[in-house]
């Protein structure tokens, strides 16, 4: 049963990643791209969790925490630069 669940989840995550990549390529503004890349980082964290469930270990928990922090820092930094550009 676990194999089927993993396939279903993997296909869904793959489709979501493709959608995010299309938005990154197409996105009219830089903020759309940041948003799409943020979602892609979340998808990567979810994939790490899936791998932990499949192989029954907890080695990647810290990577999930780090990915959360990285997404926050990235989006805040880029949006700071975008709003400073207007003030200058």
């Amino acid at each position: 049963m676990m194999n089927i669940v993993m396939w279903v989840c993997g296909v869904m995550l793959g489709l979501a990643t493709v959608a995010c990549l299309i938005r990154v390529a197409k996105g009219p503004s830089i903020l759309d791209r940041v948003l799409a890349l943020d979602v892609m980082l979340i998808i990567i964290s979810v994939a790490l969790c899936l791998e932990m469930v499949y192989n029954r270990h907890s080695d990647y928990l810290l990577f999930v925490v780090v990915a959360c922090t990285l997404g926050f820092i990235g989006s805040v930094t880029v949006s700071r630069y975008v709003s400073d550009q207007r003030n200058a």
Partner: peptide
């Protein structure tokens, strides 16, 4: 499956 569905919904919404 529900958790991964959330990611798919986010992708479709984007």
């Amino acid at each position: 499956i529900t958790g991964c569905l959330m990611s798919l919904i986010a992708g479709i919404g984007l």
